[in-house]
Design a protein around this nucleic acid. Structure first.
Length: 473
RNA sequence: GCCCCGUUCGUCUAGCGGUCUAGGACGCCGGCCUCUCACGCCGGAAACACGGGUUCGAGUCCCGUACGGGGUGCCA
């Protein structure tokens, strides 16, 4: 019975979609898609103060860019508070919850006491069985769930295995704040149930919550979803992921020039494996992805591997699509990274022509723009120091000899250009490198570029010869 | 402090008691190819955290220690 699988991605809109959230979303998406199920999206915004429209937009935008389409309309949790309150009332009526009038000071004291006594549970049950008649009129009560005091709560987690927690270590958690709004643990249970969620795949930071939620499901007589808690992603130093090393928005990866398929491939392989396989098409991921193959220990984020995968997908990429992708990046890059004359359509066409050689060398889309810069620059070119050195008297003389043979070419093709240059080399008794390097310098202003014949070709006959003449002597 | 989880090359991981003198990938080193740089190809260095058990036999099972992570909120 896998037909009815329903997963959900449930971010709280307090910030952008970062790499960890993206992986959680990906896992939910893959699991649902692989089983003919649905993935729902729920925005956990019960904490209105910390939730922003910008964050919501960033999350939705990030998911779309990654190609993780959700089913149905997103559910905004704050719109469901009356339903949450209804469930709280039900719990209250059945004696499965109670009002707690404890003050912040009393709570603080309990905390210190628990710590001193080496207990996990903090709340000492002050109002658990107390007569409501004792309630101080001045205090608005919060509502606490009345959990079992004895025995243990066991959840069968698809990733973490069987997790057993003694009930005495789980104190009565607040399910409704004194202002009447529901808290996370109550809202998740109600919403997952109402939305028909069958599998809750989320970060391991929710593992403790799962035990508490299991108790609430039990109290309500509802069936809990299958839980799968995915270990968090760490930075290269093993510590929590920080902005410095990868806790960036997925949009930041886009502007750095990463392809969504590369990020997906990297992310799916981080903590999950399918034998020795490294490269996965989306269809393969969907077919092979499963929960038990997810590892239980946190994985470190490794830019090198992401970059390698990105280079792989760039090499496989369609030339025009890559150029479009590069062009879309222009507005987002700093002026130093941006090619000059970026509004020149002709230059973009040349970029497509040069793409086979460019994409072979690029690790990111930004690299394509950088190494393809020569199609954008206008004469007279700027030269870096090494290029200048190549264009000494010798170099200038050598490329001077290229003007006539290239001018004589009727059909401007890579093959004809190569023949012309090689014949010239033979006549002049020069090794190809002796010609290619000064030529490269004259055409690109640099000493590194795609294959020289491809560069000559991509520039076009007039431009190529003009650049040579500029430097010949 | 207490509760839960984890620990195989630098990193991501394969391994589910004998096939492990531990495999793959990234990175690194060397070589080949070569018009530069890449790509590609070939080769190399590199790991079972530690200590006890269980077993004919342990990377694989159990216990402990160390280390790491998560939780311990009227945040999610």
């Amino acid at each position: 019975m896998t037909k009815g699988v329903v997963t959900r991605f449930a971010p709280s809109p307090t910030g952008f979609l970062h790499i960890g959230g993206a992986r959680t979303a990906l896992f939910n998406w893959l699991y649902a898609r692989g089983r003919g199920g649905r993935m729902l999206l729920r925005i956990e915004d019960t904490d209105r103060k910390r939730s922003t429209k910008e964050a919501i937009d960033a999350i939705l935008d990030g998911m779309r860019w990654l190609g993780l389409e959700w089913d149905d309309e997103p559910v905004y949790q704050h719109t469901r508070v009356s339903r949450h309150q209804e469930v709280v009332s039900e719990l209250l009526e059945k004696g499965l919850a109670y009002r707690c009038y404890a003050t912040p000071e009393e709570l603080e004291e309990m905390r210190n006491e628990a710590h001193a006594e080496g207990r996990t549970a903090v709340y000492n049950g002050l109002w658990r069985d107390r007569d409501p008649a004792d309630a101080p009129a001045s205090v608005e009560p919060a509502v606490r769930f009345k959990g079992p005091k004895d025995g243990e709560t066991v959840i069968d987690d698809q990733v973490m295995g069987t997790i057993t927690v003694a009930n005495k270590d789980l104190d009565d958690l607040i399910i409704q704040r004194s202002d009447g709004t529901p808290t996370y643990n109550l809202a998740v249970v109600v919403d997952d149930h109402d939305m028909g969620v069958t599998h809750a795949i989320r970060g391991a930071d929710h593992l403790t919550n799962a035990s508490r939620q299991a108790q609430i499901y039990e109290a309500l007589g509802w069936e809990a979803p299958v839980f799968a808690h995915v270990p968090l992603i760490h930075g290269p130093d093993g510590a929590k992921l920080s902005k410095r090393h990868g806790a960036l928005s997925v949009q930041a990866y886009r502007t750095m020039g990463y392809l969504p398929e590369a990020l997906r491939n990297y992310l799916v392989r981080l903590g999950w494996s399918h034998g020795d396989d490294e490269i996965f098409s989306t269809d393969q991921m969907i077919e092979w992805f499963d929960l038990p193959q997810i590892g239980r220990s946190p994985a470190r984020f490794d830019f090198d591997k992401l970059e390698n995968l990105n280079a792989h997908y760039i090499r496989q990429g369609d030339d025009q699509a890559l150029a479009d992708c590069a062009r879309a990046l222009v507005g987002e890059l700093s002026s130093g990274e941006c090619p000059p004359n970026a509004e020149n359509d002709e230059a973009w066409e040349k970029l497509v022509t040069a793409m086979p050689g460019l994409k072979e060398r690029a690790k990111t889309v930004a690299d394509i723009l950088n190494s393809g810069r020569f199609v954008f620059v206008a004469r007279p070119l700027d030269f870096d120091d090494k290029a200048k050195a190549l264009l000494d008297a010798d170099g200038r003389a050598v490329i001077q000899g290229l003007v006539d043979p290239l001018s004589a070419i009727d059909v401007w093709s890579v093959e004809n250009i190569e023949n012309a240059v090689r014949q010239y080399a033979e006549r002049a008794d020069l090794k190809l490198g002796k010609i290619a390097q000064p030529l490269r310098a004259a055409l690109t202003g640099r000493t590194v570029s795609p294959g020289i014949f491809d560069v000559v070709f991509a520039l076009g006959k007039d431009e190529a010869i003009a650049r040579i003449v500029d430097q010949a002597g």
